[in-house]
Design a binder for these strands. Structure first.
Lengths: 144, 144
DNA sequence: GTGTTTGCAAAGTGTTTGCAATTTA
DNA sequence: TAAATTGCAAACACTTTGCAAACAC
């Protein structure tokens, strides 16, 4: 049972469409293209620009503004998670589960660390009137 | 032994000047003013804009560009530490020791958590060729 | 005096937005 | 057809930079 390229592409499109419908988002051409790229493989980390480059390189026309909007819509819909590791760029992670990151600043590279791997103990109670939303751990690394 | 306001101000200026000299920075009027504000009290968290507002409110004229430059010079000199919690703003912390933070995003507020309080266990070895630089923990909180 | 630092205004970067044209259901 | 979405270009917020004037030593 060998699949042609066209068949594989069609399957990915169908999967992306289903995923978008399920998330309550209209499966427009642009969203389907972006979702196909994002969820084609396991865990991915993208910036708006990297994703725009990628989609452009694939010969698909999607404006940068739409990439930004789409990344936020996907994030709101729970398909993506925003990762804050850099004060000048936003990263988005296709892994929305509980996990942490290595971050290689010089190359803007993120690497997932599974959620069970790291244990954070001793987080104090927040000041009165505040509640913990989540605990982010960023392991900053450099070339050695 | 009561000190006049003028005497206190003079002492602060002297302390700031000494600190700058020690860090290898020329104690210019602007740097002394900013250092006096920053290191007057214990632990402070500022953005370029908040510090510029503060210095302006104090009736001192320092341009925003100089505030940016100074924050970076102080950081390089080890007097400040940059804290990355927001992808659109840079925060600087007068506490340069080992510690972590609560971050209340809605108000851009940072609160220190002493270094010994939180224990992070199970940080995996980074991929070959990479070395851990430091481990940042951000406890994101919200009003409850 | 000489090299450093400042302030200004301009440029730069990443991101958001208003709105007419297009697309989806 | 009605409502949602897109693309463009303009606007934005934050930050950096080039350079002449001012300053520290």
């Amino acid at each position: 049972m060998v699949k042609t390229l066209r068949e594989s592409a069609k399957e990915m499109t169908a999967a992306a469409t289903a995923r978008l419908r399920h998330a309550g988002l209209r499966p427009t051409r642009q969203r389907v293209e972006l979702a196909s790229l994002l969820f084609k493989t396991c865990d991915r980390h993208v910036t708006a620009e990297s994703l725009h480059d990628e989609v452009s390189d694939a010969g698909v026309k999607v404006s940068l503004a739409t990439v930004y909007n789409t990344l936020h819509q996907f994030t709101q819909a729970g398909l993506l998670r925003q990762v804050i590791v850099d004060s000048s760029r936003s990263y988005f992670d296709t892994n929305t589960g509980d996990h942490q990151h290595f971050f290689l600043e010089s190359e803007g590279m993120l690497i997932d660390i599974p959620g069970e791997t790291i244990a954070v103990a001793g987080v104090p109670a927040p000041p009165p009137g505040l509640a913990v939303d989540r605990v982010d751990v960023v392991v900053r690394v450099r070339r050695s």
